[in-house]
Nucleic acid binder design. Structure first.
Length: 498
RNA sequence: GGAGACGUGCCCGAGUGGUCCAAGGGAACAGUUUGCAAAACUGUAAAGCCGCCGGUUCAAAUCCGGCCGUCUCCUCCA
């Protein structure tokens, strides 16, 4: 079952056969959030994507060390103010209070999406010493210079020494040389506009500050990832991931820093996830084309007609490849909700099926081939939409057996068991999809509601037996207005919340 | 202006030289079920050639060039 794994490597822009540095082990670093405000739904997609990657790597047998940082210092706004400090100033809080608040919020959201925690989640402020050491190394190697208490990475020298700078983001050095924003803080201290700060001297009003050989100051934005990935995964590790928008300058500068400090490349494979859009346009707070996870879950937004559960949103994300842009639309979410329920219900049906010890028919072969294909496609750059498509092909078979259109005698007990394992593996272990309690009454843990619903359904059933359609329809319609849907089936009535 | 990605049925979204007259989901339509609905299940049909134009090839949605459009990045961003 273990297929060879292929990964689209941003570094080479090619799909490559994955070979770990140490057989059986993988080191993976993913750039985490800057915790200065509530987590954005786009962030959620990125981290859900990497969670699937992490889970799948483990599933195919690797021991993975997954490191995802929390950036709580160094990330400056356009005005040159530290994002943490700005958040603190506005809310009259300590910077660390701001960091803590949004870190907790971020963790809560990751839990809501049922992602697994990384093995190590280092914070930039917890690694100031490592960052200072790295600045020193880069200085020692002659690839940085000090100016007025700040230290800048010498991009020109680096570019002249080795043909690395610009490779990851596809930038041409000449272009970099000629263009740069002119409103950057401390621009005048730099030898060249494309140079970037790895240590910055703190102004008097700057709260986040540490002692260093050069000044009382703070580390540059890109440095924490270089320092922390090196510390926990080594100078060169297997996979580095992050959102597409981090390619430049963040990742490009990270690569430069690692080369500058250690003389080697940080990661063999770079994975970049693509952006989430809404209604065909980039999400933007300023023009209102934005939606928060909370709004998605509550339905409280002009962009959507109803609430969507976190698992529906996650399923929606899985229907697209991580490397493609994904457009959030109300209709898209509605479709995803139906697909998600169909998958989960088919799985519930499958897990209850009894083996009938059938023969190895054509159908049996087909099912096994489809299962093989699902894993093979998942191993082809984590192609979740393809794997999902194969699962849905199996759903048709499962429902066919359930409805009696297909005889259980057509598949062997081994194949049935394999199908059960495959669904369980994909849904639970790889995709991390949970049974959505709000969408499924059978999993609703609320005893009072369950009891009340049982009573109401019972009363309505009585009315139906006496053909009192007025009463039974009134119950049905009233519940509908409360967004509770009754489902009359052969074996009685169930309900679900919409 | 520069760099990158993309443009596939009614919608979403796979497919990156032949097995594609193009996966899967949703919608549509029909059937089963139902007191009627809804839900569920089953089945069917649906892209006149995969943005447009041209080229390479025995063979292209898939490679190359041009054009049009969308998105991302160019030191705020997952």
């Amino acid at each position: 079952m273990k297929n060879e794994l292929y990964i689209q490597n941003s570094l080479t822009r090619k799909k490559e056969l994955f070979k770990p540095i140490t057989e059986g082990f993988i080191g993976m670093y993913v750039c985490g959030p800057t915790v200065y405000n509530d987590v954005h739904i786009g962030n959620c997609r990125t981290f859900v994507s990497f969670d699937i990657i992490y889970r799948y790597l483990k599933y195919i047998g690797y021991q993975v060390r997954y490191v995802r940082n929390i950036t709580d210092v160094g990330h400056l706004t356009d005005e040159g103010e530290d994002k943490m400090s700005k958040g603190a100033r506005l809310a009259k809080l300590e910077p660390m209070e701001v960091a803590q608040k949004y870190t907790v919020g971020f963790h809560d959201m990751m839990r809501i999406f049922n992602t697994q925690a990384p093995n190590i989640e280092p914070r930039a402020t917890g690694h100031i010493i490592e960052q200072i050491e790295m600045v020193q190394q880069i200085l020692d190697n002659g690839l940085a210079y000090e100016a007025n208490g700040s230290v800048y990475f010498d991009t020109i020298k680096f570019a002249q020494q080795q043909d690395v700078y610009g490779k990851l983001s596809g930038r041409k050095i000449d272009d970099l040389m000629s263009e740069s924003r002119d409103d950057l803080k401390n621009q005048s201290e730099k030898n060249h506009p494309s140079d970037f700060a790895i240590w910055m001297k703190a102004s008097d009003e700057h709260i986040l500050r540490w002692n260093s050989p050069w000044s009382v100051g703070f580390p540059g934005w890109h440095l924490e990832c270089s320092a922390m990935s090196t510390k926990y995964l080594g100078k060169t590790f297997d996979i580095h991931g992050g959102g597409n928008d981090l390619k430049f300058p963040h990742h490009e500068n990270e690569v430069a820093q690692n080369h500058g400090a250690c003389g080697c490349h940080p990661a063999n494979y770079w994975i970049h996830t693509n952006m989430l859009e809404m209604n065909g346009r980039k999400m933007s707070k300023s023009d209102g084309n934005t939606i928060t996870p909370a709004q998605l879950f509550s339905g409280n937004s002009p962009h959507i007609s109803k609430a969507y559960s976190p698992m529906v949103v996650k399923f929606f994300m899985l229907q697209a490849h991580y490397g493609s842009t994904l457009d959030i639309t109300d209709k898209g979410l509605q479709d995803a909700e139906k697909g998600y329920r169909k998958l989960m219900e088919a799985n519930a049906l499958l897990q209850k099926m009894e083996s009938s010890n059938g023969a190895a028919t054509e159908l049996d072969k087909e099912i096994n081939a489809t299962i093989n294909k699902a894993f093979q496609q998942m191993s082809d750059d984590f192609n979740t939409p393809m794997a999902l498509a194969r699962l849905f092909e199996l759903v048709a078979k499962i429902n066919g057996i359930g409805a009696g259109h297909i005889s259980g005698d057509e598949i062997t007990s081994d194949t049935l068991q394999r199908m059960k394992d495959t669904f369980q593996s994909f849904i639970t272990d790889i995709f991390g999809l949970l049974n959505d309690s709000t969408a499924d009454s059978t999993n609703n843990g609320n005893g009072v509601t369950d009891g009340l619903m049982e009573l109401i359904i019972d009363l309505r059933q009585n009315a139906r037996v006496t053909k009192d359609w007025g009463t039974s329809d009134k119950i049905r319609d009233s519940l509908n207005e409360l967004k509770i849907q009754l489902k009359d089936g052969k074996d009685g009535t169930t309900w679900s919340k919409n």
